[in-house]
Design a protein around this nucleic acid. Sequence first.
DNA 1: ATATTATACTTGTCTATACAAGTTGTCAAT
DNA 2: ATTGACAACTTGTATAGACAAGTATAATAT
Lengths: 241, 241
Amino acid sequence: MAQSKVGVIAQDLVDKIKHQQYQAGDYLPSEHQLMDLYGSSRETIRKALNSLTDLGLIQKIRGKGSIVLNLDRYTFPISGITSFAELNNQLGLKAETKVLLLQKEDKLPVQFIKYFPEEENSTGFHLERLRLIDGQADVLDCDYLLSPPVNSLPREAAETSIYDYLENKQKLDISYAAKEMSVCKVDKRIQDLLQLDNDLAVLVASRNYLADTTKFELTLSYHRPDKFKFVDFARRKKIKL
Amino acid sequence: MAQSKVGVIAQDLVDKIKHQQYQAGDYLPSEHQLMDLYGSSRETIRKALNSLTDLGLIQKIRGKGSIVLNLDRYTFPISGITSFAELNNQLGLKAETKVLLLQKEDKLPVQFIKYFPEEENSTGFHLERLRLIDGQADVLDCDYLLSPPVNSLPREAAETSIYDYLENKQKLDISYAAKEMSVCKVDKRIQDLLQLDNDLAVLVASRNYLADTTKFELTLSYHRPDKFKFVDFARRKKIKL
DNA sequence: ATATTATACTTGTCTATACAAGTTGTCAAT
DNA sequence: ATTGACAACTTGTATAGACAAGTATAATAT
């Protein structure tokens, strides 16, 4: 997966932290020791450590070392662009996906237009999936996969993992996303699907992009408010926007 | 603010993007050109560019260059640990802060215990502030500033910006936070303060830490659901957690 | 005209080196 | 016993160089 030396080292450190070979509160070996351990230069080690810092796994302290942070908290940041299938694997949940709809469209379905008006006339695949955890419908995922660049979308991919399909079969290089989280009123249909008491749901709207900056996916995710939880790790910005 | 060469370059590039000296869709000058422009080495330039990449301001494409992404979208990610006062400045809102409560406590007030049980017996400053925008109460911020390391907390700081006070007066090095977002039921008092129709509010719970990994603040922010919006920029992770 | 090759650009990765600066323990002077 | 200077560690920052790999253009061969 990670072919670069930096990537291999970072992944190895992450694995060792995950398996508590390095425990929360401990200091990692010093950068010089890691140089010997991995047979690489200091800058390479430091780049690996920086990615752990960004993930919130360690804290570097000048003059002392790199402390492993405490995130045995059952809640760990899963932000980033992570697909439901991946999340499912990582957390070891037994979730189920029901494909409600999958069809090609000439232009953007009405329900998306309010949130993505700039794609009104784009062709694409309209996909609706209901996510069940322990038999309960927790999330309704509405996707619109823009048809260039997405050529095809077999039903099987929709039932398992479209990200796996797009990345490994279609060789698309998924890169970044701009998300918006809010609370909104939903219509009767969604209310029924999620078995809501009232008409409020948490909505996550997202524009997803490839590495060449092509937009390839629009997503509207409706979450049951009582099941929704978003966990985030944030570092204090040193740059003023 | 940013004293390192990398920091200065990054901030300068950000400013130039913000003032549309480099516009969305344009390529930045190449790394070699930037080396000449700033009189620095390539690695230094690349570190600056990487921080812009993390912020979602540019996308680097091998063989071509660094494209400025469009974020003219009125919504731009403000995540990270940003204080209300800072957010207020950046967005140019005319907001008001009402301090409802500010007092020292021997142990964690009951309302916090459910979310931060590990700090049950910690001494600290209990602070409640109501945030009004255009005259309407949108957010109720409940803070608990742990008393070591926070020595004092004058009322004036609470009315303007505690982060400014803590960083510049108390010289605390605020570094990172672990946040949790969810929807919860609130009691009658909060319902009245925020003038809610029902008893649902968006809750953001956060543990905030200093650079030396000391926890210094617990926060419970109750948001009016119809005013709450959280914007996020995320890159696809290459590391499996 | 078409395809191939060469080239000059771009970013990606890694190395080796140097010095600055924060932390900790030791040893000596007082 | 306290203080102070020093040495040996730590991370932070910046540099110069090398080579790999992707992109685009122009020249060349077919």
